[in-house]
Design a protein around this nucleic acid. Structure first.
Length: 419
RNA sequence: GUGGCCGUAGCUCAGCCCGGUUAGAGCACCUGGUUGUGGUCCAGGAAGUCGGGGGUUCAAAUCCCCUCGGUCACCCCA
């Protein structure tokens, strides 16, 4: 930080090894889990026409004040994506793939907001979207995929919160009832919540302000407003999760930040995180979104998981460690470095990870570098070995010692040692 | 967007309250500890515009203002 004149912009950062390796591994595990369930990858653009994101709801903070918007040189109104569901559904509307269309994605999103622990202006998510079926079993599959993913990482202290916002009519009636309830007693609400009440009454339920607690506790409950159809759908989702042995807590006050959610909504929180940002993932149904993007009415369900926060949760639970080594073999060349050029190439072509030292440093310095590299084996070549057509292979980790052997036997020897 | 705390070598920090010799420590890094061998130990070394700018003063890392960044909370969400 001290002497560089440029710094990463506020709310962004560079991810260096070993974090970067851990990062990549997380995405690989995710791809593995959802790929095994028939989800294929979709890579949407990182920016869209602003209107695509307006479909998320003008009253949401994400759209109202957190979007990176700009005019491009062609005069188009563009926004960096604040999330990927809108882009994926736009892609669905544009390409009209056969349903069920089950896809996954991974990549950065952008929101202009004040950074804090687990909250960045550029943040990565992995997620899935499944469009087509209205089947509650699909909701359960989607939720289960996230759950199994967390399990694969080794996370144990994850809580699944579940709710149903009902069909559009149910939701509207509930919003009306909520508005009536809070308006009747508006004086008792915090100033912020009074404002929220006028723009997005549902989200008053989300307030953490102590002043609001009493009125929120007394508020009407969503389950009482579910139509029979929505209630049955929700019951089937729950039954499937029960059958899968996935624990959840029904949370009637769980409302999510985007307006498009209907019926099943869910959120994953990490109990091990003591930060305020303990939601590591969330999702739900958005049965009207495809229509809003210009596609034939098509139900959909999906989730997004925050990569940064998931990794923070892994830290808190001390699971999913970063890989410890970069290479298997390290070449030490005291003949000036020419031999290392050939030896590293040979070892790498044999499929082994291999590095070397530079600048013709002393043997001691090269051995030190070999040790630091994490390599299990050092391949040493000096004048003695070179003139005899040999190399010396030294074990850096165990007590296997070292031996000098014919250069032609090197690869076979390394393979045996690394088994 | 609002408020609290913080910003000194690559990293973690001391020094700041009570302005004044060449700004320190640990870890990391580099070089040695004789004749080609790392991880321990010993010795030495390199490394800081004290976040940036302005002000007060004979003198500021130390006091004041502004600014940038970090962090925590609110807000919101992944």
């Amino acid at each position: 930080m001290a002497d560089s004149i440029y710094r990463a912009p506020k709310g962004t950062r560079d991810i260096l090894w070993p974090d970067s390796a851990r990062w990549r591994t997380l995405v690989e595990v995710f791809a593995d889990v959802v790929g095994a369930a028939g989800y294929t990858q979709v890579v949407p653009p990182m920016f869209e026409h602003v209107e695509v994101f307006r479909r998320l709801g003008d009253a949401t903070d994400v759209v109202a004040k957190e979007m990176y918007e700009f005019l491009d040189k062609g005069g188009r109104s563009i926004a960096l994506r604040p999330e990927q569901t809108a882009s994926v559904v736009r892609a669905f509307a544009e390409h009209r793939p056969v349903v069920p269309w089950k896809v996954w994605y991974a990549g950065p999103n952008f929101r202009y907001e004040r950074a804090q622990k687990g909250r960045f202006r550029q943040f990565d998510q992995v997620g899935v979207e499944a469009l087509g079926p209205d089947d509650p079993h699909l909701d359960a599959e989607v939720i289960a995929l996230a759950w199994r993913f967390y399990e694969r990482l080794g996370l144990r202290q994850v809580t699944l919160l579940l709710n149903s916002l009902g069909n559009p009519d149910d939701r509207s009636r509930y919003v009306e009832a909520l508005t009536a309830h809070f308006s009747a007693d508006a004086d008792a609400l915090s100033a912020e919540s009074r404002k929220t009440l006028t723009t997005n009454p549902l989200r008053v339920l989300d307030s953490q302000r102590p002043d609001d607690a009493e009125l929120i506790d007394a508020a009407p409950r969503m389950p009482d407003f579910l139509s029979e159809d929505a209630a049955t759908h929700f019951a089937t989702v729950r039954a499937a999760l029960d059958a899968l042995g996935i624990p959840y807590t029904v949370s009637p006050r769980l409302v999510r930040g985007l307006d498009y959610y209907l019926r099943t909504t869910f959120e994953f929180t990490a109990e091990a995180l003591d930060a305020a940002q303990d939601a590591i993932g969330g999702g739900g149904r958005y049965d009207r979104l495809a229509e809003a993007m210009g596609a034939p009415a098509t139900p959909g369900v999906g989730f997004a998981l925050g990569v940064d926060r998931t990794l923070l949760a892994c830290d808190a639970e001390a699971v999913f460690d970063a890989p410890a080594t970069v290479v298997d073999v390290f070449v030490v060349d005291t003949c000036g470095g020419d031999e290392a050029v050939l030896l590293t190439d040979e070892v790498r072509r044999a499929g082994l990870r291999c590095d070397r030292a530079w600048d013709d440093r002393s043997m001691k310095a090269q051995m030190k570098a070999a040790d630091r590299s994490g390599a299990a084996i050092a391949v040493i070549i000096g004048e003695d070995e070179r003139s005899g057509g040999n190399v010396t292979v030294r074990d850096l980790r165990g007590g296997a010692g070292q031996e000098t052997l014919a250069r032609t036997d090197l690869i076979e020897n390394l393979r045996t040692r690394l088994q």
